[in-house]
């Protein structure tokens, strides 16, 4: 299932966009993944992404975020479903695409990474502009709810159960010290359906339960 598919589902209007109501709304949203046509077109595109990341990383540590990705493909509306051959040809990519590609890049580097879903606070002013922008491109904007948004990123394993959260669209590591306000992370869900996955992960001193929303 892709971001676009779930975005097309009717999103019930809520009153006050509280964290719990938002996480309920986005509870059924899976993390985005890029599709593969099973042909050379997607194979070449995927190889280019992985080899390019290897070059861009240079001598930096494998835990360095793939900052080049949002630089080459700035954040913006993306139609879904999305295949590799389409992703490399786009001018902009949304957070789902950034997350899905970064996920592959970290994995190719030998770094464990899991998809992470975020609920973030902004302002009605900000989300109105985003809604307009998405509307212009005729892409659904179910990720917006009042002054709160749904966002995706990567939960990258540092060591053992300790993780860092990479915002693949912004190109920064999310600060575990959150104090609310504009841009604040309200809730996070890290997905890992595998049986071997630990029950909780440690993020800057916080314990985050896997596969469910954690209020920050």
């Amino acid at each position: 299932m892709y971001l676009a598919e779930v975005e097309t589902r009717a999103v019930q209007a809520t009153e006050v966009p509280e964290v719990t109501s938002c996480t309920v709304k986005w509870d059924s949203w899976p993390a985005s993944t890029i599709s593969h046509h099973g042909q050379a077109c997607c194979e070449i595109a995927r190889e280019w992404m992985l080899a390019n990341d290897f070059s861009q990383l240079g001598d930096a540590a494998a835990l360095t975020g793939p900052r080049w990705l949002p630089k080459k493909y700035p954040w913006g509306p993306s139609p879904w479903p999305m295949h590799w051959c389409e992703a490399v040809g786009r001018k902009k990519l949304d957070c789902g695409a950034h997350q899905a590609i970064s996920q592959e890049l970290f994995t190719a580097r030998g770094v464990q990474s899991r998809p992470a879903q975020f609920v973030q606070q902004f302002s009605e002013e900000a989300t109105r502009h985003w809604g307009h922008k998405w509307g212009e491109d005729q892409v659904p904007a179910g990720w917006i709810d009042g002054d709160v948004i749904y966002h995706e990123g990567c939960a990258v394993t540092v060591e053992g159960d300790e993780i860092k959260l990479w915002d693949a669209s912004a190109g920064w590591w999310i600060d575990p010290q959150q104090s609310g306000g504009y841009g604040a992370l309200l809730s996070v869900r890290i997905l890992d359906p595998s049986a071997e996955a630990p029950q909780t992960l440690s993020w800057g001193g916080r314990q985050l339960a896997l596969n469910r929303w954690n209020t920050v």
């Binding site: 050379a40 194979e43 070449i44 190889e47 992985l50 080899a51 290897f54 070059s55 240079g58 001598d59």
Partner: peptide, 17 residues
């Protein structure tokens, strides 16, 4: 030497594709 490794990575892609 990092460029050398980078080149090897691209060579692998070229062989594969």
């Amino acid at each position: 030497w990092r460029l050398f490794d980078s080149m090897l990575r691209w060579c692998q892609s070229l062989e594969r594709l």
